[in-house]
Write a protein that binds this DNA or RNA. Structure first.
Length: 508
RNA sequence: GCCGCCAUCGUCUAGUCUGGUCUAGGACAUCAGCUUCUCAAGCUGGAGACUCGGGUUCAAAUCCCGAUGGCGGCGCCA
């Protein structure tokens, strides 16, 4: 007996994207909030693919939805790929079910065929807008006789199926916003299917939620105005009403809907750009929600514990790229060196700085100018990566910030060697001092401590350390900004360090 | 236009339900300093907000009304 009660009260939610485009960051957040809410209540989280728009739905987008959610660690418990007791989980695989309900509505005269042309409807809409009223269908085809309908259908006259909307006040409680009400008289009879075999979003969604025993519908704010329509469909069908929770939208910096104009919007683009899933999750969770304390770093597991759907903000939140970058930098710093190096490898390979040749042990250093290739170990790459851990905001910055370790020749303007008011002569003197001092260190003694001792001794005799250290750093890296020269020299090795100093002297 | 939702630093937000402890707290960004060869990281400090107008009250960011602004919806898209 208790078991049964438990079963009927189990929370069931769903994330129902349509595979008509890349999985948007806003969709990801909707999925995240659903996941957090469900997981903390030990509920079931259904992934449903809403592919009723046959023209725009694509298999590759569906794949991307799976991939994105998996990357972020947002796990669903039922879905098209893993199955479940309430499938199928793709809407186009259950057309017969929608058809059954559609026939029921038609039979009960709760829905009717409409033969109005799109042009006719469009003209009426424009007229209504011009008169300052909310556009709605005038119910013209409602007065069609059974015989006329039969005749039209037989002639294959183009038609849609509309739901009769009764005039009443539709009221519902929203977990995130409280009571919301709307007058259904303003809506007009909505189209719920193009035909018996092609239901529209409103209808299919409502039927799925019922059949999948969804208890909580958590979705974006853009659906608030759709909710009364769906409630009316539920009522016509005699379905149970789920609990609704509408979460605010993610906005672009100008407060408009976030779109491609503002750069990356899909989850996979963020992955490619070198964002960590931890950072994206933490960031997205805090867009519209916060724990009410001053704590700001949360893992997915910690969010499951602390998240409260009732506490989500009501207003839309602007996507603050700088904050995401900050969080990403933070999570990069949290990684162990081995983990970060592992993450760096694909970026180094992609930019042709290294080649992978059968596993970690045989990583090849690849010179982009000479043909020579030499081996470099994972441990050596780790050392290089360690110098950059505090300097990275995104993984995609990896090749650009450490390429000088891998390249045979580095290119930079001579002008860059100049520190403060140094003359060409000063630079040459510094480079000579560097060459002399460093050549004194024997190959076997080439380590950070010795390099530092020798160089600092030399540098103290100059107006300031920069006179020696800046040209050194530039000669070794070719960059205006980088990690410190001692560490770099150590990793580069005696031979290459001296070689680059000599090259710097020859620069025209 | 109509309907709905919303409104605290540039941004994300705490505080609003249960008025006083709020000369409004935190974080990102920004500025200055420390550190320092540069850039990061780290530390210290600064500047920076209750949309406006009416009420209610001894007292309003907090309650009520109105205005304004922003966003969403008004599809044979989802």
């Amino acid at each position: 007996m208790p078991k049964k009660i438990k079963e009927t009260t189990k929370i069931r939610t769903r994330f129902a994207p349509s595979p008509t485009g890349h999985l948007h960051i806003g969709g990801v957040r909707t999925a995240l909030f659903n996941y957090l809410f469900t997981k903390q209540n030990n509920g079931a989280f259904v992934l449903r693919i809403e592919d009723t728009d046959v023209e725009r739905s694509k298999k590759e987008y569906e794949e991307e939805i799976f991939e994105s959610l998996k990357w972020l660690g947002i796990k669903w418990t039922e879905g098209p790929d893993i199955g479940g007791d309430y499938g199928p989980y793709r809407q186009m695989e259950k057309r017969n079910i929608y058809k059954k309900y559609l026939e029921q509505l038609l039979k009960e005269s709760k829905a009717y065929y409409c033969f109005c042309s799109e042009e006719e409807l469009e003209a009426k809409r424009q007229d209504q807008t011009a008169r300052g009223v909310m556009p709605k269908y005038d119910g013209k085809c409602l007065s069609l006789s059974k015989i006329e309908i039969e005749k039209n259908l037989k002639e294959n006259k183009k038609s849609v199926i509309r739901l009769r909307i009764p005039e009443k006040k539709v009221v519902f409680e929203d977990i995130a916003r409280g009571r919301i009400e709307m007058d259904s008289g303003l809506i007009g009879d909505i189209v719920i299917a193009k035909s018996l075999d092609s239901p529209l979003f409103y209808l299919a969604g409502v039927i799925d939620d019922e059949e999948m025993k969804i208890t909580h519908v958590i979705r974006g704010e853009e659906h608030i105005s759709n909710t009364p329509k769906q409630i009316l469909i539920q009522e016509a069908l005699g379905f149970k009403r789920p609990i609704y929770g509408h979460i605010p939208l993610i906005l672009a910096p100008d407060r408009s809907k976030l779109s491609k104009r503002y750069g990356a919007v899909s989850a996979m683009e963020y992955k490619k750009a070198g964002y960590l899933p931890e950072a994206l999750i933490n960031f997205l969770a805090f867009l519209g929600w916060n724990p009410g304390t001053e704590r700001e770093f949360f893992s997915l597991a910690q969010l499951v514990k602390e998240f409260k759907l009732e506490n989500v903000q009501k207003g839309g939140a602007i996507f603050n790229q700088k904050r995401l970058d900050f969080l990403n930098g933070f999570y990069i710093r949290q990684k162990s060196l081995a983990q970060l190096t592992e993450l760096a490898l694909p970026y180094l390979i992609e930019s042709k700085l290294i080649e992978a040749d059968g596993g970690k042990e045989k990583i090849l250093k690849h010179y982009d100018i000479c043909e020579t290739k030499e081996q470099i170990s994972f441990e050596e790459i780790e050392k290089i990566v360690s110098l950059h851990q505090t300097r990275l905001k995104k993984l995609s910055e990896i090749p650009g910030s450490m390429d000088f370790f891998f390249k045979k020749e580095i290119i930079y303007p001579k002008e860059l060697l100049k520190w403060q008011e140094m003359s060409d002569k000063d630079i040459l003197e510094s480079l000579n001092k560097l060459e002399n001092a460093l050549s004194q260190i024997k190959e076997k003694n080439w380590d950070l401590k010795n390099i530092q001792n020798v160089l600092l001794l030399e540098a103290e005799q100059l107006p300031n350390r920069g006179y020696l250290l800046w040209p050194l750093r530039v000669a070794l890296t070719g960059k205006e900004y980088s990690a410190g020269p001692f560490e770099i020299a150590e990793i580069l090795g005696r031979e290459k360090t001296l070689e680059r100093i000599i090259k710097a002297k020859q620069l025209k």
